[in-house]
Design a protein around this nucleic acid. Structure first.
Lengths: 194, 194
DNA sequence: AAATTTATTGAATTTAAATTCAATAAACTA
DNA sequence: TAGTTTATTGAATTTAAATTCAATAAATTT
């Protein structure tokens, strides 16, 4: 393995460690020394891999933003049209909740992105974290569901925002208490149904 | 007005200012100087009223905890039995969302309590912030709704936690974007309905 | 294997923000 | 009104945490 790959791998390790800690204790309560100790490596070495604590966060947020984008972009329009909107959303939530156990990474990222968006984090991080994409995507999906008569009437964008805000809230609750079982996804989708 | 009352009033002013700022920018991004400037008063004087920034937060959390407690304790059991569970919850949410506009205080407090509970805040604050009461209260309500056949089956405590987590998520979204309209409370209660 | 580059450490420094403090003004008490 | 207590200020200090740095070890190149 080349040196660059080594370094890249180490960077990833740091990122993942930081991600867990940020979600667990919050960005500000996580000290550089905490991350270093958890990796583990010396505090000084952290700055060989990342310019600053904030750059570390920014990097995570960038990854998160890409993930979110690919999430909505990743669904081929033709497939999508065939699936009823409620079935699609339920399926999606099922996947996300399943990750909570098996791929804590994706799950934690979800929680981090929400925390960043809701501020209490350095300004710079914000600009990258706008989850406009997924709101637009879901909003369109909801509109279709409304036309099909399976979703309730009302401003589709507002419904989408509330839907995601609920998901976010529940995921944060789960992140806080690892022993909490995931809810049945249909409970949440019920918010939208007639 | 006596001197003590003066002081108490000033304390309240500081608390309310801090509460808004904590919710708006987050606890750590709100500097003592920011609060002082907003009140307004000199930075030094802040410490004449509160021992530390953390004591200030603790005071707010204590107020919030009392508020939450009185919320559940405040409903006479006899009244409660007569009202269908779904109607009660919808009514409750209607009130809370109405506050968003008229009494930002209550609203902000709600958001702050959630943020504290989900960590990212000094440890001490946690102990006081446990919202166990309202979960128990809601859980009981949901059980009743299940017996009456208006609520879906499933672990009542989990349903209660998800319900509040959703509300929390939506309120935080509203706190973030003041122009966001409140959702129809029945959307959220729909989560519980058969 | 010598030279160069990269990784690593832990202590020293810097920095931003909380907290203290000495000095002054205002309010109250006797 | 003289004296005492409380409110107020803004600059000085402390503190905790991020960041830099000089020194050393390991790896890579020539």
């Amino acid at each position: 393995m080349t040196r660059k790959e080594q370094k890249e791998e180490r960077r990833q390790a740091i990122l993942m460690t930081a991600l867990s800690l940020f979600v667990e204790k919050g960005y500000y309560d996580t000290k550089i020394t905490d991350i270093a100790a958890a990796v583990p490596m010396s505090t000084g070495l952290m700055f060989h891999y990342f310019e600053s604590k904030e750059e570390l966060l920014l990097e995570l947020v960038k990854m998160g933003a890409e993930g979110t984008r690919s999430l909505s972009a990743g669904v081929p329009a033709k497939q999508l049209e065939k699936i009823p909107a409620d079935v699609f959303l339920t399926g999606f939530l099922t996947k996300v909740f399943a990750y909570a156990k098996e791929e804590p990474w994706v799950f934690n990222m979800f929680v981090l992105m929400g925390q960043v968006r809701r501020s209490g984090m350095p300004e710079e991080a914000h600009k990258t974290a706008l989850a406009v994409d997924s709101i637009e995507f879901t909003s369109a999906l909801i509109s279709r569901g409304q036309k099909d008569g399976i979703f309730r009437e009302g401003d589709a964008t507002l419904l989408a925002r509330c839907f995601w805000a609920s998901v976010q809230g529940i995921m944060e609750e789960m992140a806080m208490d690892k022993s909490m079982p995931a809810p049945d996804p249909s409970w949440i989708v019920a918010m939208l149904k007639v």
